[in-house]
């Protein structure tokens, strides 16, 4: 079964923009303001390895593991994004349990598959994608992610060369957390403000111009603060001194 998304790990993150019909992208390059969001509180159980045959005598590994995520009983979540760091999982499927919102209040006990065999490692025998961060968005899923009460992540690793596989730093975000104002990076507002022409001919600066320049200066300092690479000073000494005896190990 093929999903309508790019299944190339390592690039998964870029897949975000493919599906992004949202007004503002969520991510910005490092160094600019990122919106601060809190992941949804949840209980994560696992990974539990699927075992073939007797646990004590059979050492064959099935290459399948399950992670269960549940939200506190009273709460169902409209899931927006699932973020994790891979640890040697090659393929991921996700199944969800929802409060059936079509038949008001009545809960359906059917598991629905919202992601099927999503590729996290293009070649399961080698390192590619083995420890990458990935974001999965609701737009990428096979079904809606409203009113989710629990998720079951099914991890597969067909290659026998890895001793363990799992997903780490699993975080789930719900809808309605995007705040465009907060996510709006400073350099962009700076760009917009500078598009107005400035007079260059000799004249006394008017108050409006002066204030806009002060504002620009302020913005520039903000940009420099957020953008460390922009300021290259070139000094390696401290107060004119670079007398060193030994290197530090920490």
């Amino acid at each position: 079964m093929c999903l309508g998304i790019r299944a190339v790990p390592g690039l998964v993150y870029y897949g975000v923009l493919i599906l992004s019909s949202r007004p503002k992208p969520t991510y910005w390059p490092s160094g600019v303001n990122r919106m601060s969001r809190d992941p949804v509180l949840c209980t994560i159980k696992g990974p539990i390895m699927l075992q073939v045959g007797d646990v004590k005598t059979d050492f064959a590994r099935a290459g399948v593991a399950v992670i269960d995520v549940t939200f506190p009983q009273t709460k169902a979540v409209d899931v927006q994004e699932i973020v994790f760091k891979n640890y040697y999982t090659a393929f991921l499927s996700i199944r969800i349990l929802q409060n059936n919102h079509h038949c008001s209040g009545e809960r359906s006990r059917n598991w629905r598959t919202c992601l099927r065999n999503y590729c996290l490692m293009p070649n399961p025998h080698t390192e590619d994608g083995s420890q990458e961060y990935t974001s999965l968005f609701r737009q990428q899923m096979l079904c809606d992610l409203d009113q989710v009460t629990s998720l079951r992540l099914i991890l597969r690793q067909p290659s026998p060369v890895w001793l363990h596989f799992s997903l780490e730093e699993l975080q789930i975000y719900h809808c309605g957390q995007e705040n465009p104002q907060k996510g709006f990076p400073l350099w962009l507002s700076c760009l917009l403000s500078q598009e107005q022409p400035t007079k260059v001919h000799n004249a006394l600066p008017d108050a409006e111009k002066a204030s806009s320049e002060v504002q620009q200066m302020w913005m520039l300092t903000e940009v420099i603060q957020t953008n460390e690479t922009a300021a290259r000073i070139g000094r390696f000494d401290v107060d004119g001194c670079y007398d060193i005896n030994l290197l530090s190990y920490t």
């Binding site: 991510y27 600019v32 350099w187 953008n227 922009a230």
Partner: peptide, 13 residues
């Protein structure tokens, strides 16, 4: 879009 944002930030300064 992401690469452009990244680039603008790099080249400023």
């Amino acid at each position: 879009p992401l690469v452009i944002a990244h680039m603008v930030q790099k080249l400023r300064g």
